[in-house]
């Protein structure tokens, strides 16, 4: 039993770390700002999520009762990540950052009423 849980914790930690790394690779390698925005908002939240699940499992099976307070961090990140991504995208649209030429569609809203 102990070893199964230990293996699960190890698995979740590795998954979390791998997703965080993939998100950061996306941040470093993708060619324009709007594409870079995708990596951190998704992959990193799942990266932290994986770590947190591992941590919950680890601390809950030490015999000191359930430990769920790490879930607060994931909850908080899930709520805040879209907000900060939205604010950054808005700022980037406002500053008219370059996009890759093959980006289709206009970076402005109809009637130009960008708020």
């Amino acid at each position: 039993m102990e070893t199964i849980i230990e293996a699960l914790v190890a698995l979740f930690l590795l998954i979390g770390a791998a997703f965080a790394l993939v998100g950061s690779i996306g941040l470093a390698k993708l060619p324009d700002f709007f594409m870079r925005l995708h990596g951190p908002t998704k992959a990193t939240t799942l990266g932290v999520g994986g770590m947190i699940v591992g941590s919950v499992l680890y601390f809950s099976t030490r015999g000191e009762g359930l430990s769920l307070h790490e879930l607060l961090i994931t909850l908080f990140l899930l709520i805040t990540a879209p907000v900060s991504a939205h604010m950054l995208a808005k700022a980037a649209l406002h500053l008219r950052l370059r996009t890759v030429e093959r980006t289709r569609g206009e970076g402005t809203l109809p009637r130009g009423d960008v708020k």
Partner: peptide
């Protein structure tokens, strides 16, 4: 913003 390959910008 959280789901497949999309981010809401404005």
């Amino acid at each position: 913003s959280l789901t497949p390959g999309t981010v809401s910008a404005d």
